[in-house]
Design a protein around this nucleic acid. Sequence first.
DNA 1: GCCCAGGGCTATG
DNA 2: CATAGCCATGGG
Length: 272
Amino acid sequence: MSGQLRISPFSLKESLECGQFFRWTKIGDTYLIQSSNRIFSLHQKKDFLYYEGVEESFLVDFFRLEDDFDAILESIEQDSIIHQAIHQYRGLRLLRQDPWECLLSFLCSSAKAIPQIRSILEELCRSCGKKIFFKNYQSYGFPEPSSIRTPFQLKSVKAGFRIDYLVRASQCIDRKQLLALRRLPYPEARKSLMKLPGVGKKVADCTLLYSLDFLEAFPIDTWIRRGLQEFYFGGKRVGEKKMEGFVSKHFGPFAGYAQLYLYHFWRNDEKK
DNA sequence: GCCCAGGGCTATG
DNA sequence: CATAGCCATGGG
C-alpha cells in the first residue's frame, strides 16, 4: 500500500491544482487525496511519485498512465497558444475520476468559484458520507446515491438551487449506469447525461472527459469561452455551436486534453 | 449594497 | 439557434 512510481513527464501539482478534481489537501509538500471512499497521500520528487495508503494499480488508472501521453500531446499541439500551455505546464495529466463523484462535483459547479465548489463537496461528504481513516486522520468519503435522499438532509451543504440537482441525480442514476455510458458513442452518452436535471452540455462534457474516457469531449465554460474568443476568433463574439465545431476540427479526437491545458493556462494567466 | 462565480432552464425573437 | 432573466449562496 506504499511505494514509489517513476513517471515522466509528470507534475502532481499541476494535475491536482488545475481544477479538474476537487478533493485534495496540500500539507507541506504532500497532497492528501480523497476520491470516493479512498483516502491516501502522494508527494513527488523529480520523476518519482511516492504514495501511501493506495495500490499502484489504482494510481496507474487514476493518472491515466496507460495513455500514450507524448503522442496525444503531439496530436493536439496545433498552434502557438496550445504550444505555450503544454510547455508551461509540462506533466499535467488528465485524471480518470470516479464517475459518480465527478458528476455530482460538476453539478455543484454552476455559477460557483472553485473554492466554493470544494467547500460544498466537503460539506456534502460530512453530511452524508461514511467515516474514513488515514493514519490518525479521520475524514468522510463521498456519499453513494442511496445516502442522498432528501433536500432537507443537505441543508447544511448550502448548495442553493443545486441541492435539487443532487437529490434528483441520486434517484435517477448510479455509478454502474454511468460506467455503462462508456460503451456508447460520444453524442449518445452526452444526450443521455443531459436528461438529468442540472446537466447541460458543460457538466455532461466534464463528466464524460474527467471520468468516462471520452477524450474528444471539450467542456466550454466561461474561461474557455473568453479564451477561444480572444485567441482564435479575433475577439469577435461567436455562438457556442461554432466554437464546438472549431475545437473538434482543430484539436481532433484528443481535444479534451487540449481543454485541460487551455483552461489551466488561461485561468492562471488571468488570475494575477 | 452590488457584482460575479467551471451553468442550466425557460421563455422569447 | 441566440439572448435575457432567474435560480441560492458566499466572497470580493
